[in-house]
Design a binder for these strands. Structure first.
Length: 873
RNA sequence: GGGCGCAUAGCUCAGUUGGUUAGAGCACUUCGUUUACACCGAAGGGGUCCUAGGUUCGAAUCCUUGUGCGCCCACCA
């Protein structure tokens, strides 16, 4: 039995054991749930953590929320599927392994060679993947492990290839030469949103290309000027209008340049000299300008970050060396006009922080603008915007709808090829200039497989359906198996920082291939910041490790601490005290249960006899909280649902009703009835402790016990949901009692509810005082002399008043005086309100009536208090 | 440059469509208790709801403005 185990709840005694028993039951798998064929599905696909990750607070929030949703719906009788998986995170993983190998052996990946290196990666994955999965389990996540997926396992490879080929065949995927973000260290392209901008100071050089041309230009990157093919000026800039349209041939430090002078609105007259050297091959903006003006491209820097061969003395230099040398040469040639320091932002690689080199390169792209036949001729971009505009996909909080739409509407073609080794291989073959895209290598000789791999988001973009058996489960436009049962999924729950990177990709991929949305709702949680409001990060060392928290306070406490005091989409600061506070609650709850179970048999009572006022009061509160929790959870208002449930358990049930139950006897039925409800109610929020209590009480698993709803308790007698107010009842009862006993309000005595034994009363008076005192202030004082000898008397069949202690006269006067002042102030406010004819005319009748009643009862109260003060004096 | 968010008790934050005298946790003060629980209980102090206007019978809540933080996107030659 529970009470013999421990006076306080030790999570470590239960959590692992319980998790194993859940896994063993097989009930995380919806196929094993005892459900009617028609039971609706409820699906969440776990946003796959990177295999290299350790669990961090962001994951913990995600798991707490998703597990809550899944457990809630499972208990509600849904076919609840929460599908786990991990992400191969191509670049991140490759970098991690490179770092590791370099540290251990001093070798680079090139030393090892591709094959050896990839072996090392897979070895590494075997180790790290186990870690993150184990940690997810520690949180209590009820994920269906039988469906575990990995973005680079065999089924997903098959799916990715199919997707690529389909997209290629419908012309959405194409190969083209475009300017891309190139990371010289990762030796790969990056998507636009994988680039991070960092504020830095740079040298801005202003100089002439040559003495032959009196137009000066400004740049922070003189080395790229070797590849300039134009000079752009603002069309309104009169200084240069005479040059417009001309082509100027000159020698720039010994390198021949042919420069067209063009006009473009993008050029800022006031920046530098007002003229811009256009380098189409090494600048995003210049590339776009070059497209419009049909300019030539001239590559200067190669994939290693070195100056290419055709640039005389600068060839083979790194871009930085070339820059120094050019600046120096400009000085010597007297061409350099000035050097100034400016603040600008440098684009860097989001994975390794190297400076990005924009360069021209042949890559694979997903076109977002190409009309797609099977989507009514709409493009991916249009469709992705459409389904959010018409709310086929809803955002919570709603403001992120706009963020999403802004982003999608400004979307450019998505570069999906990466020049890293680890990742999905592109199903394409090359033979000289020919390209073939397909599953198998063409039979003729000479075809070489494309060396590139795919952007990691390409495979994670397919996550909602690649995990559900696509493409095998999709034939001739018909879904079957898991795909039919569980797609579209219900909710995508993730951080708002990932809307662009991931959410939009999933939407496009799912629309392209299934012509349906991947999820009906996007719930975005906020970021967890440290105590100072800063992002937690490894390098800053300010992170809190959820595993440490779990070890110290238990998984339930950690979960509750992450669910409360937060609102969706808003960041929140986290400090350990939050977990501590919730640990205290969990322990409280443990003891409440222990107390109730110890005094009840193992029966759960569905029907409770409500004998006394206290019974009716607590039960109505209980029903209120049942309804409230259901409502809150439906609205995904997790924070308030949790807080209010905790508040009910701690304040109403434990501090008030349990104290009464020690005096009034025969509460076993109602207590066990409520405990059964509360355990089921709180299980999605705090699964371990609730299951631990349940299993020491009942022989079933709580996980699949029905989630309580009010209708379950309608057969309980004596409960009228509209008649909850304890105060009213007590007041009536006590008024009757007062006249029956002829008790007058008097000087020095406080009176409180108690029942039967005096000893009990003394012990529990404190708890009782709070409630009566706050609720029926006017009845706090009774003439001591008029009380019966035992100092206990009945004022109603189920309430008795007991005279407790003498009150300090001065203190009491002070208190009463304050109360009087408060009341007077309040009455004044209400009077002003009621005197205001506008209020009476315009406010709803109900509100006016309430106000009038308030005024009346307050005035009565005030009179009584004044009388009391008189008597005391 | 464009967009978004936040500002409420000492701290961290709630506060649902405007409607009782604005709440919780932590911290603080005083007191109590040791067979459900000290990871406890009771009582208490603490707030011009950032500023200035407006709408309304009524504003923490809606609108406008200012200030201070924070974030995202674009540009950065």
């Amino acid at each position: 039995m529970l009470e013999k185990i421990s006076k306080s709840y030790n999570p470590e005694d239960f959590e692992d054991k319980i998790y194993k028993s859940w896994e063993k039951s097989g009930l995380f798998n919806p196929d094993n749930l005892d459900l009617a064929e028609s039971a609706p599905s409820y699906t969440i696909i776990l946003p796959p953590p990177n295999i290299t990750d350790k669990l961090h607070m962001g994951h913990s929030v995600m798991i707490a929320i998703e597990d809550l949703l899944i457990r809630y719906h499972r208990q509600k009788g849904y076919r609840a599927l929460w599908l786990p998986g991990t992400d191969h995170a191509a670049i991140a993983t490759q970098n991690a392994v490179e770092k590791k190998i370099l540290k251990e052996t001093g070798k680079t990946r090139h030393d090892l060679g591709k094959e050896e290196f990839l072996k090392e990666v897979w070895k590494f994955i075997d180790e790290t993947q186990a870690t993150i999965l184990k940690q997810i389990k520690k949180m209590g996540a009820s994920l269906d492990w039988s469906r575990l997926a990995f973005t680079l396992d065999e089924p997903r490879q098959k799916a990715v290839e199919k997707m690529f080929v389909d997209m290629y065949e419908s012309g959405v995927i194409y190969r083209g030469e475009r300017i891309v973000n190139w990371c010289p260290r990762c030796h790969s392209t990056l998507a636009d949103d994988e680039v991070e901008y960092k504020e830095k100071t740079s040298e801005l050089y202003t100089f002439y290309y040559s003495k032959d041309l009196p137009i000066a230009i400004s740049t922070t990157r003189p080395e790229t000027k070797l590849g300039d093919t134009a000079i752009a000026v603002n069309p309104k800039d009169k200084r240069y209008s005479k040059y417009l349209g001309k082509t100027i041939n000159l020698s720039f430090l010994g390198v021949d340049l042919s420069l067209q002078v063009i006009a473009d609105n993008l050029v800022d007259k006031s920046f530098g000299s007002g003229a811009l050297g256009v380098t189409p091959a090494h600048s995003m903006a210049d590339w776009q300008m070059a497209q419009e003006h049909n300019l030539e491209f001239k590559k200067v820097i190669d994939e290693d970050g070195l100056i290419k061969n055709d640039f005389s003395k600068y060839s083979k230099l790194s871009s930085l060396e070339a820059r120094k040398k050019i600046v120096n040469d400009l000085k010597e040639a007297g061409l350099l006009i000035k050097t100034e320091t400016i603040e600008n932002s440098i684009s860097t690689c989001y994975r390794c922080s190297s400076v990005i080199e924009p360069l021209l390169s042949k890559q694979w792209f997903v076109s977002v603008d190409k009309p797609i036949k099977h989507l009514e001729g709409k493009s991916l971009k249009q469709k992705a915007a459409e389904v959010v505009e018409n709310e086929e996909i809803k955002f919570l909080p709603a403001r992120f709808k706009q963020t999403y739409l802004n982003w999608v509407n400004n979307l450019h073609d998505w570069c999906i090829s990466r020049q890293i080794w680890f990742g999905h291989r592109i199903p394409a073959w090359h033979r000289e200039d020919e390209v073939y895209v397909g599953f198998e290598k063409p039979k003729e000789a000479g075809w070489q497989k494309d060396e590139d791999t795919l952007d990691t988001w390409f495979s994670s973009g397919m996550w909602t359906f690649s995990t559900l058996g696509w493409p095998d489960n999709y034939q001739n436009g018909e879904k079957k198996g898991d795909l039919a049962k569980f797609h579209p999924t219900n909710v995508l729950e993730t951080g708002y920082d990932i809307i662009t990177l991931w959410v939009s990709r999933m939407v496009m991929m799912s629309l392209f291939t299934l012509n349906e949305v991947p999820f009906k709702e996007v719930y975005l949680h906020g970021m967890i910041l440290d105590g100072e409001g800063k992002k937690m990060s490894k390098s800053k060392g300010n992170g809190i490790d959820p595993m440490d928290l779990i070890e110290k306070y238990g998984a339930d406490a950690v979960r509750l601490s992450l669910l409360t005091g937060v609102t969706p989409g808003n960041d929140s600061r986290y400090s350990e005290e939050k977990a501590e506070a919730k640990r205290n609650f969990i322990n409280k709850f443990w003891n409440i249960s222990r107390f109730i179970i110890s005094s009840s048999d193992n029966k759960i009572n569905k029907k409770a006899q409500l004998n006394t006022l206290a019974d009716r009061w607590i039960f109505s509160k209980f029903l209120e909280i049942v309804e409230n929790t259901n409502e809150r959870l439906e609205k995904k208002d997790f924070s308030l649902a949790t807080e209010e449930l905790i508040n009910f358990i701690w304040n109403d049930l434990a501090n008030w009703y349990l104290e009464i139950s020690k005096i009034e006897k025969n509460k076993e039925e109602i207590l066990s009835c409520m405990l059964s409800g509360i355990l089921r109610l709180i299980h999605p929020l705090a699964p371990f402790v609730s299951e631990a209590i349940w299993q020491s009480w009942q022989n079933t698993t709580l996980m699949t016990e029905k989630y309580p709803s009010i209708s379950e308790f309608v057969n309980v007698e004596n409960v009228d949901l509209k008649d909850f107010e304890l105060i009213q009842e007590i007041i009536v009862a006590i008024r009757e009692a007062r006249s029956a006993h002829k008790i007058e309000p008097s000087k020095k005595i406080a009176a409180y509810i108690v029942v039967n034994k005096k000893e009990d009363l003394i012990k529990n008076q404190q708890a009782l005082i709070k409630n009566l005192k706050t609720n029926i202030k006017e009845l706090n004082f009774i003439e001591k002399k008029q009380a019966p000898k035992e100092a206990v008397f009945t004022i109603a069949s189920d309430i008795e008043i007991y005279l407790l202690q003498e009150i300090d006269k001065d203190q009491e006067l002070e208190r009463l005086d304050k109360e009087r002042k408060d009341l007077e102030k309040y009455i004044k406010i209400v009077k002003v309100k009621l005197d205001n004819s506008d209020f009476v005319k315009k406010a709803p009748e109900k509100v006016v009536k309430i106000e009038k009643e308030k005024l009346k009862s307050s005035t009565e109260k005030l009179e009584k208090i004044i009388e009391k003060i008189k008597n005391l004096k």
